[in-house]
Design a binder for these strands. Sequence first.
RNA 1: GGAACGGUGGCAGAGCGGACAAAUGCAGCCGCCUUGAAAGCGGCCGGCUCGAAAGGGCCCGGGGGUUCAAAUCCCUCCCGUUCCGCCA
Length: 429
Amino acid sequence: MIDVRLLRQDADAVRAGLARRGKPELLDQLAEAITLDIEVRDIGTRRDAIRARVNELSKQVGAARRDGNTAAADDLQKQSRELGDEEHSLAARADELQEQLRQILLRIPNVPHPEAPDGASDHDNPVVKGPLQMPASFTDQQRIPHWDTAARLGILDSERAVKLSGAMFTMPRKAGAMLSRALCQYALDMNADAYEEVRPPSLVTTATLTATGQLPKFADDAYAIERDDLWCIPTAEAPLTSLYSGEILDEAALPVRLMAYSPCFRREAGSAGRDTRGMLRAHEFDKVEILALATPEQAATMLIELRDRAERLIAGLGLPYRIIEICTGDMGQSHHRSFDIEVYAPGCDSWLEVSSVSWFSDYQGRRADIRYRRAGEKGTHLVHTLNGSALAVPRVWAAIVENFHQPDGSVVIPEALRRYMRGLERITV
RNA sequence: GGAACGGUGGCAGAGCGGACAAAUGCAGCCGCCUUGAAAGCGGCCGGCUCGAAAGGGCCCGGGGGUUCAAAUCCCUCCCGUUCCGCCA
C-alpha cells in the first residue's frame, strides 16, 4: 500500500508518481482515497472526543458508587448512556468508511522509482545489459522448438500431463525430470553462501496473499481452495515476504536474505491459447526465489545484488541472455523498480523472461506490517522488500534444450548441472 | 475428527467488572559504584493512531455482544498444548 500520510502531506508527489504508470483512472481512485481519508479522520476525531467523555463519566460513576452517592451515580450513568448511542453510530460510520478506504488503497499500485524508465508498454522496456553469450549464428538443430526435440528424446510427456490435469500442465520425464530438479539444486547451491534456505508452505491464507499484492486485485490469477480459505502460491515470494509479517526486527538483523524452492501455481486466466506448446507457460511450475528484507538505505544495493545473482545463474549455464529494465507502463502493481533477465531461445525465436528482480519499497512491508527498530531509537520503520526469481525452471529448461541441441540430435547438459544429474553429459534417444 | 485445558508486553508470568497499558522477574537502555567488568543501587523501559502542541483515542488471539465502565462476563471464529481417533 502507498503511504496515506504521504498522500495527505504531499498528494501532488503521489499523483505525479502514479501518473507515470499511464493509467488515468488511478488518479480518480487517488482523489476518492483523499476524500475518504479526510472524512474518516473527521468522524474519528468526533468519536474520540465522545469516547473520552464516556471514560471520564465512567470513572465518576465508580467514584460516586464507592462513596455511596447512588443518586449522583444514576444520573451520571444516564448521561453516559446517552452519549453511548451517538458514539456507536459514529464508530460504525468510521469503520465503514475506513474499510472503503482500505479497499481502494489495496488496489492502488506502488509509485515508481524516480530512475525507472518511462514507457507505455513492454515495447518500451530498455535493454540495460547484453545480449551476452550470443553466438554469431544458430544451427538448424538449434532452430527446432524444444517441444519437438523433447518429444523425440522422450523427456517431456505433455499428452499424459493433460490427461492427468488438463490443458497447460507439463510433465518432464527421465533426463527431463532430472534436468528440472538439477536446475533447482543448482540455483539453491549457488546462493547458499549468503541466503538462508526455506521450504515454505505452498498453500497460504488470504492475508498472506494480500500482503504481497496478489490479492485482492488479481484473485482470478490464483488458485483458490475455498473450503479452507487457502490459496495456492503463485510464487514463493508470498510466503517468504510474510515470514516476518506483524513483527518488529532489529536493524542489525537486516538485510534478511532468504531463498526457497517452491512449486508455483497460476491460473493464467488471461492467456488461454497462448504458449500452449512445450514448457513456456503452465499452471504449475518450479522456481527458486531469492528475497531480501532491507532498510531503505540498503535497498538500492540489494536490488543490484539480487539481479547480479540471478544473472550469474544464467551466465553459468552458458545461455544467451540480456537484461531489460521494466518501464513505468509495464510494471507490476507492487513494483517500485524492476529488471527482467531474458534468455534467447532460438527454437522459439524469442526472448524468454526467466527472472524478474524487483524492489517494492515499503509497499509490501506496509501491507505485511514488517517493521524494524534502529538501535537506541524509539519508534519503528517499515522494511523494504525485494525479491527475484533466481531461476524459473521451465523456460530455462526449454532454452537449454534448444540452445544445446547438437547436430547429432543430442542435447548437451551444461557442465554446471552434471553433478546434479548423476554425471549425465548429454541427453540422447 | 472428538475431549480437556489454554492464548496477556521482547520473553516468563500475575491480574479474572471500576484507580490496569496492565504487578513481578528476566532481558534492554541511562546513571552511580569500579582500574575495568560482574554483582549492588537509583531511574527509564510496548505498539498503533488523531493532533502544530497540550492532550485525546485504540490495542491483553480475531470478530461480535452485555454494561455507565470489559484483559476480566457472554457468543463465535482462529491458533496452541495434552489425550483419544485417523494417517504420509
